[in-house]
Design a protein around this nucleic acid. Structure first.
Length: 879
RNA sequence: GGCCGAGUGGCGGAAUGGCAGACGCUCUGGACUUAAAAUCCAGUGGGGGGUAACCCCCGUGCGGGUUCGACUCCCGCCUCGGCUACCA
């Protein structure tokens, strides 16, 4: 009777593991440790999709194998549970988002357990747990309490910030403001997407073409007081420390790209009319902040200074008003107003045609003393560099486009190298074609003839000596807008002081650590209150207006973004239930860093960058012991639908793991997802493929179990014979391949090797237990339920989870003879069988005498021969 | 436009200088069965030759190159996918 039936086998072993706490990790590792982590999921209402178990199965295999290899394994799971959908649901139904969130978590937990992952469930956490976000708030306070020391390239306590004398002399408020300006968490005004019709602020992804995603109402951009995190301070370290982590080069490239380091120069252009203004500069040197008499620009091509024919400043540049002459005032005002109304995205979409407006003012080019016009255009961004550029239309595509549009002079100062055709060269020299690459300087006075790289260095030095420029480094990375106008997020542990009239004084007070957590308040309902301020403005007064030492405060009503919770969950897993600290330092030292982190490529930039940033702050503040959290990273590939398209509800090609498990069992699902192809590849789903894995597990079952017996009984072929030499070889080959493939995360080939083992032994009617038992152990990480059941049937009482991993012997593997290909003139012409240890001479002799080869060599002259012992023989011949 | 990745049988894939297509799916034929399912056995890149064990030719997106030998390395393209987008 007992055919392979996962429906009975799998729940049985899941219950066993849970009852025996089989996969509980030790608090501290003994011996070698492995911390393998999955990117925890957002528990959406749809439940798990088949993409989730791909990465989860991979780490599970690694962990199960590591346990059998004697390592201390930490393998936890949790939930990134804050998020918009639960809040949207709450707005619609009035039900607290926590209720919906917990329902979804229950579904996810059930599904994860159904798949037999060896998580230590006692460490489960959700970012929405009050006891968890208590420490998220605590970390925010650490960040708030930190400033970045540029000299030391290190975050330090704000109490150690040196206060300049003039600030100290200005009094306590000035000192407080000075500190606030330097904190890694600071307040700033930033535009939000305010939708008056919905009465709420929308996230960027809820705005489509300037309209709300729901209802299509118009959305305006409005500045709002927000919290920012100074991630830019860490840009250099976030960039350079990538060198030390074992990540895919593509992900490193993505992060480097996002950080976007560029090296160039800041150059001051004089705004006044004084003839020899620059003579004053060497005395003063290049000032840290430019004065009102100059416009400071950033360029990566200081070598093109002689070709700068105009200046562009961003519409938001502080000098706009000052530089605009009376006759241009109306046009400038109109232009800047339009630019402000456009979102960044919108601005980019409309970028096909460059627009701008002339201010009426001019600036002096410090390289050649030329007077050039100053324009305003939205293709220059206020948030990058100095918000002002020198435009060199001959050598920059954007400037070229703009100059053509507004008929501004185009002056070629770089002569292209040899790669350019004659016609092109003429066009470039004439200024009718743009040339952005390197070359040789022309029309650049004393610098003529210099190659670009050298020119860059020389002119920067020369201008720097005159106090007109300096080398400068810029980053594309922006400071992190860290607040959201939402209910369902972590409250900030921050209080705003109020004066007697109830208005904010601008003084901010951090909530005492002892008073954490700051829980979310009770709200009567979750409907928008119709103002751009966050929904927590609706909170009851007892929550919103605490009084401390006789001073009345208003709580911060912004909440943290969803990223916050995922920035440090990997630390909390080490010490989940610690009520005294975020994490015990001894435990942290013992388990960190994460040895294997697996997740989707969609998190290659933001999540990983944000988490690395927090980690570095915590490192600087002595909370953690490693500079980087994620030592090795792997992105699992996307699983497409059976039609080769992205899985989505609208395409109707979503595969539900519940139904797959119901029909084939978790082991087949796990095995199939690993067999589909390389972990990192994108690959399409196939139900027939799952069925194929089910068939394989059935063959494994019948190889060991007598499926015609009424009760569980071993197949009659299972015996205590000594395995034959060939059987030994097959077995050892399997052990070696599976062991090595798991280490390489090459699970598809590991499974193929186990299939070969099964094909071989199924054909035998004497199957030695001595190889079947260790085979079951090899299979266990991939298909743990059936492996446990077979292990039990083979007469073992306990779980196999901690049985010693089989070992292989290369000597057993070695065959006495090997088959070697023989090539003539590069073509395969025959095969010879030679002793495995045959030397080159012997192999050549056998090849020459081979019945296939000999006739082909007859009468020919062998001009060259290549013999690789154990590999191949190759002859080059001519008539 | 930029960056990254991928193109190998009917399909998923294997081989990362040395016998292309391991392993699985599909399909075909056979065994078992009253029959079917399940299972087991055999075959399965294309073309050609031989009674036959077998043999020959072509073949890894396209065009060049390096090499005794290239799916693999180099140069130039094409196609598809992902991410990103005026960063001076």
């Amino acid at each position: 009777m007992p055919r392979y039936n996962p429906a009975t086998v799998e729940p049985k072993w899941q219950a066993y593991w849970e009852e025996h706490q089989t996969f509980a990790s030790p608090q501290m590792p003994t011996g070698e440790k492995l911390y393998a982590l999955d990117m925890f999921p957002y528990p959406s209402g749809d439940g798990l999709h088949v993409g989730h178990p791909e990465g989860y199965t991979a780490t599970d295999i690694v962990c199960r194998a590591a346990r059998m290899q004697g390592k201390s394994v930490l393998h936890p799971m949790g939930f990134d549970a804050f998020g918009l959908p639960a809040e949207e649901h709450a707005i619609k139904t009035g039900e607290h988002p926590r209720i919906q969130t917990e329902k979804n978590i229950d579904t996810f937990r059930r599904q994860l357990k159904m798949l037999g992952f060896s998580y230590d469930w006692s460490r489960e956490l959700a970012t929405t747990d009050v006891e968890y976000f208590r420490w998220t708030q605590w970390i925010f306070l650490q960040i708030y309490d930190t400033w970045f020391d540029e000299q030391q390239q290190k975050g330090r306590p704000i109490s150690e910030l040196p206060i300049p004398d003039e600030v100290a002399d200005a009094g306590a408020d000035a000192v407080r403001e000075y500190r606030d300006e330097h904190r890694l968490a600071f307040q700033s005004f930033a535009p939000v997407n305010w939708c008056p019709a919905l009465g709420t602020v929308l996230a960027n992804e809820e705005v489509i073409d300037g309209k709300s995603e729901r209802g299509g109402h118009p959305v305006e951009r409005r500045p709002l007081r927000q919290w920012m995190l100074r991630i830019t301070a860490y840009a250099s370290r976030l960039e350079s420390d990538l060198e030390f982590v074992d990540w895919p080069e593509s992900v490193k490239a993505l992060q480097r790209n996002w950080i976007g380091q560029s090296i160039g120069a800041e150059v001051d252009f004089y705004l006044g009319s004084e003839e020899d203004w620059s003579l004053r500069r060497p005395v003063h040197k290049f000032p840290r902040k430019p004065g009102d008499d100059v416009l400071r620009i950033y360029t990566t091509r200081p070598d093109t200074l002689f070709g700068a024919t105009y200046i562009v400043i961003a519409p938001e540049h502080p000098f706009v008003e000052r530089l605009t002459t009376a006759e241009n005032a109306a046009a400038v005002k109109k232009y800047c107003g339009q630019a402000a109304a456009k979102s960044d995205l919108h601005r980019a979409e409309l970028a096909k045609e460059k627009t701008g407006v002339f201010t009426g003012s001019f600036a002096i080019n410090p390289a050649n003393g030329e007077r050039i016009p100053i324009w305003i255009a939205d293709y220059v961004l206020i948030s990058y560099g100095t918000g002002a550029i020198m435009a060199v239309p001959a050598h920059d595509e954007r400037d070229f486009e703009f100059a053509k549009q507004y008929e501004i002079a185009i002056k070629c100062v770089v002569k292209p190298g040899e790669k350019v055709s004659h016609g092109e060269l003429q066009r470039i020299l004439a200024g009718v074609q743009v040339y952005a690459a390197h070359g040789t300087a022309i029309n650049s006075g004393e610098f003529d003839g210099l190659p670009t790289a050298e020119f860059k260095r020389k002119i920067t030095e020369s201008l720097a000596a005159r106090g007109l420029a300096r080398e400068a480094v810029n980053y594309k990375l922006r400071d992190w807008l860290f607040s959201r106008q939402r209910f369902w997020g972590e409250p900030f542990p921050v209080l705003h002081e109020l004066d007697d009239a109830g208005n904010p004084t601008g003084r901010v007070r951090a909530v005492d650590e002892a008073d954490l957590p700051v829980d979310l308040p009770h709200l009567e309902d979750f409907k928008p209150h119709g103002r751009p301020e966050p929904p927590l403005d609706k909170a009851p007064d007892e929550w919103l207006y605490p009084v401390i030492d006789g001073i009345r405060y208003k709580r911060e009503t912004n909440t943290m973004p969803q990223w916050a919770g995922s920035c440090w969950y990997y630390l909390r897993f080490l010490d989940t239930n610690n009520s005294k600290a975020a994490i015990d330092p001894t435990i942290e030292k013992a388990w960190m860093p994460i040895d294997l982190y697996v997740g989707g490529a969609e998190h290659a930039v933001l999540h990983l960058l944000y988490a690395r940033f927090w980690h570095k702050v915590l490192y600087d503040r002595g909370v953690v012991s490693t500079p980087e959290p994620f030592q090795k990273l792997i992105n699992q590939g996307m699983i497409l639908g059976e039609n080769n398209e992205k899985m989505s509800k609208s395409r109707g090609n979503v595969v539900n793991p519940d139904s797959v498990v119901k029909e084939y069992g978790a082991d087949s699902l796990r095995l199939y997802e690993m067999f589909m192809g390389p972990l990192e590849a994108t690959k399409p789903w196939s139900m027939e493929g799952v069925n194929g894995m089910f068939g394989f597990l059935g063959r494994v079952w019948r190889m060991i179990i007598d499926d015609r017996s009424e009760s569980i009984a071993l197949n009659l072929a299972v015996c205590d014979d000594e395995p034959t030499e060939e059987a030994q070889r097959v077995f050892h080959k399997t052990v070696k391949a599976v062991t090595e493939d798991i280490a390489k995360l090459s699970f598809n080939t590991a499974i193929a090797r186990m299939m070969e083992f099964t094909n071989y032994f199924t054909k035998l009617d004497r199957r030695p237990r001595a190889v079947l038992e260790p085979f079951v152990l090899l299979l266990a990480p991939f298909a743990p339920h059936i492996a446990e059941e077979l292990w039990r049937a083979l007469g073992h009482e306990k779980t196999l989870a901690y049985e010693a991993w089989p070992i292989y012997d290369d000597d057993v593997l070695a065959e006495s003879t090997v088959e070697i290909p023989v090539q003539i003139n590069g073509k395969l012409r025959g095969k010879i069988t030679v002793p495995a240890d045959a030397d080159a001479e012997e192999m050549e002799k056998i090849a020459r005498n081979d019945a296939q080869i000999a006739p082909l060599l007859e009468g020919k002259q062998v001009t060259k021969k290549i013999v690789v012992p154990g590999r191949m023989v190759s002859f080059v011949v001519k008539d």
